[in-house]
């Protein structure tokens, strides 16, 4: 399997490099991997994820995402890279003035897909996340679990190479959480999508047979 994400001696920092969060981390993630990232609060889990979609520039070392070096990536290249990523947030980050259907096809809209393709993909994904009857509703009319399913559908809409999920079940009850885990596992197994999930839900991590990174004391350690 080809390498999708590769970090070598990666250092991430805030405050113009003064506040180092992760130091000298090295790891590789291959196509089709499902990876959990856990660690104490403030350890740098979300920071690592943000560096993968280019919201934070690495201070030192190398970080390759889909072959793009994130340390010196230019805005236009980053824009292109992001079109191949599916991103899921703990607080869903849906566009509240858009319908569920429009939210789901946002990545297709950005890439200029024709309307009929957008519509067909939206219908397929709505069915997949069991929200077909909510297509014309607005995010704030849905429950938290339903909103996160919209977020997952949006992340899947362009069959991305990598899905980055930051505490995707952090605000959800157990039933909704299980639905989200199923959706992410299916994407990984059926589409060979690489999935990186930051979570603090350890029972889930231990119950699923996937790779597991722990971030602690500024280091990234693979424990499974």
């Amino acid at each position: 399997m080809s390498t999708v994400i590769s970090a070598k001696n990666l250092t991430l920092a805030y405050d113009n490099g003064r506040n180092e969060i992760i130091k000298n981390a090295s790891f590789e993630i291959r196509k089709g991997d499902f990876v959990f990232i856990t660690g104490p609060s403030g350890s740098g889990k979300s920071t690592l994820l943000k560096s993968l979609y280019g919201e934070i520039r690495p201070k030192e070392g190398s970080l390759l995402v889909g072959g793009v070096e994130m340390r010196n990536v230019k805005a236009r290249k980053l824009q292109e890279l992001r079109k191949h990523l599916g991103i899921i947030f703990q607080d869903y980050r849906l566009i509240n003035e858009w319908t569920v259907e429009k939210n789901i096809v946002l990545p297709l809209m950005i890439d200029g897909y024709p309307l009929d393709v957008q519509e067909a993909q939206a219908q397929r994904l709505l069915k997949h996340v069991k929200l077909s009857e909510h297509a014309d509703r607005y995010p704030l009319e849905l429950s938290g679990g339903e909103q996160q399913r919209v977020g997952v559908a949006r992340a899947l809409s362009k069959n991305p190479v990598v899905i980055l999920a930051d505490e995707p079940t952090g605000n959800l009850d157990e039933y909704s959480s299980n639905v989200i885990w199923d959706l992410l596992e299916n994407a990984c197994k059926q589409l060979q999508t690489t999935v990186l999930v930051v979570t603090h839900k350890m029972p889930t991590v231990f119950s699923l047979p996937y790779r597991h990174f722990i971030i602690e004391s500024r280091g990234v350690y693979e424990v499974r």
Binding site: R82, R93, I110
Partner: peptide, 16 residues
């Protein structure tokens, strides 16, 4: 702001 930032994360160009 919220909408534009979400679109930016998904790779939308400035004009879009």
């Amino acid at each position: 702001q919220e909408r534009m930032q979400i679109m930016e994360i998904f790779g939308a160009p400035l004009m879009l």
